[in-house]
Amino acid sequence: MKRIRASRLGLLLMYAVLTIWAVISLIPLYWVFTTAFQQPNEVQIMPPKFIPTVVSRYLPLRLTGQKEAAQALVDGALESFRLLFQRTDMVRWFMNSALIAVSATAGVLFLDSMAAFSFAKKQFPGREFIFWLMISTMMIPGQVLLVPMFMVVRNLGIVNTPWAILLPQLSMVFGVFLLRQFMSTIPSELIEAARIDGAGEFGIYWRVMLPLAKPGLATLGILTFSASWNSFLWPLIAVQKSEWFTLPVGLKTLQDQNLVNYGLLMSGAAVAAVPMIIVFLSFQKYFIRGLTLGGVKG
């Protein structure tokens, strides 16, 4: 009896700590979204309005019959969105970003899981050397690689094409590292068992390794999508024609030289956050615990 009560108290405490922590963590994101929906003259006001006027005042106004005032609030809240959607090429930028981010995610998951499988579970001369050679390149700050990467894509003749953004993203090595660490914990007996059952090497990778690595793949998928979706400086340099602008590049060209338009900035950020949230939520189901190794005996 005593133990149960203690653990219940512990559970309560855990919930409390997590909830407070989560609330603090979410403040910046909350701020992004509320700023996006503030009235133009309330954007960036200090101290900030934690609840946008359109939320706090709309219903009272409607209920008291002030239809026009209520509508004006909605118009004010949506002003920067209207600008984004009606007067810019945002839909095109969005599709470009989506095409690149989806391709990058799919490509990275495939390439990195193959490489990680090999580094984690296969024996071949030079394995450790090649692995650490690749990993060590993460330690060079990306900023110094902008010029030589620009030279590479130019020599390949792919400047101003989406390949110039996509291929460097497919070449990043952190996913190989992540998945190798993840796959190395998967029991080798499973591979041996599959091999005895007559599976080929690709079959082992595809039918045994990938299903077992689902949580790791889901993590990498989320991270790759976000990284690709948010990347700014390289797409700005590699793709100069506006027809291939990505969302972050396009949004930045809307900003004036001298004063930042925070309403526009935060509305853009809010729009840009939605796909990442969707991707995150749809990968969520692969985090289910204890499913993967149920049938295995050690």
């Binding site: 390439l111 990195d112 193959m114 490489a115 499988f117 090999s118 580094f119 296969k122 090649i130 690749m134 390149t137 690689l145 030589p148 990467m149 590479v152 390949l156 291929l167 460097p168 497919l170 070449s171 990043m172 090595v173 190989v176 090497e201 990778y205």
Partner: peptide
Amino acid sequence: FILPKFALFIVFVFI
């Protein structure tokens, strides 16, 4: 298994 990744790595990272 590592070849595709390694080839991309050489061109876009190592060089």
